[in-house]
Design a protein around this nucleic acid. Sequence first.
DNA 1: GGTATATATATGCAAACGCATGAGTTTTGT
DNA 2: ACAAAACTCATGCGTTTGCATATATATACC
Lengths: 161, 161
Amino acid sequence: MTPPTPTPEQSTTSLANEAWESLLLAHTSLMKRFISENIWMELSIREYDVLYTLSKCAEPVRLGDLQRNVLLSQPALSRMVDRLVGRGLVQRQTDPTDARGVLLSLSADGVAAQRRVGRRHARSVANAMTTVLSRDQLIELRAICQALATQADAQDRRSRS
Amino acid sequence: MTPPTPTPEQSTTSLANEAWESLLLAHTSLMKRFISENIWMELSIREYDVLYTLSKCAEPVRLGDLQRNVLLSQPALSRMVDRLVGRGLVQRQTDPTDARGVLLSLSADGVAAQRRVGRRHARSVANAMTTVLSRDQLIELRAICQALATQADAQDRRSRS
DNA sequence: GGTATATATATGCAAACGCATGAGTTTTGT
DNA sequence: ACAAAACTCATGCGTTTGCATATATATACC
């Protein structure tokens, strides 16, 4: 039944699963650690994620675009944006070229809040990563994860159409 | 103000943050993709995560041990276990050596459910990972993420004591 | 040995989430 | 040009989450 020595194919399959599992464990461990840092009074880490994503966008973006970077359902993200708009951190306007959509951008307060929290969080991240990984490993990890993210996004878009 | 060329230290800091950001993006993209697979009718992906963790434990484990692998608050995990016990997938017994604690293990139904869902999920994972990464990259990713996870856990335990 | 402190899990409650669906807008097909 | 289908976001509703705290047991200190 089982082959005497694992074929390359089988081996690669379990290797792939082990790699994903370790990515998940790393994500969970580090997330817990970052969340436990005492810097999330004005912004939850999920809210920060949204503000950070917006801060990287030169122009206002659609809710749908924002959703690609956040692990939330569309209604949950919609209401989260609601709350952020209510707190004056995000600006929402209907897209002039498509009245179905909304365009989102950071307000001045939103930029300031993102930067305040971001500075402290970035220190925490850098500390956690650099005490474990070498420069080369950081570069390798970045390359691998970028490849994973872009490929998964591409396949996501393909399955939508 | 800004140095003419970035010092190695600064460079490593931003590199570390870029690596973490790409890990986050990869996690989000892949999670969305896996969640969208049509295999989560009997078990949500979070429930599966708990059952999978239990399936790897040779002996019953404490709620607190389980919590290290799951990104849930202690009360949320406690209630999730409640529901899984209610559905007959997990067995809960008070720890004989410490009556405060509970020992958790999979029931026969729990093992079966984990395997049913796990087989299909593992195929999905293997497919997503191997179409993007080479064997060497998978090995490298696994090593790096294992290092990150174990180190973060170690520091977590240290900060508790 | 008995009280004080620490630890492990459970529960009350308000906030946030996901699913199903609704409302409004654009695109397609004839 | 108009009806039908598709798309984008918002809302109703039951479920799940996190925070604060309660409960129960174990450990430490005197």
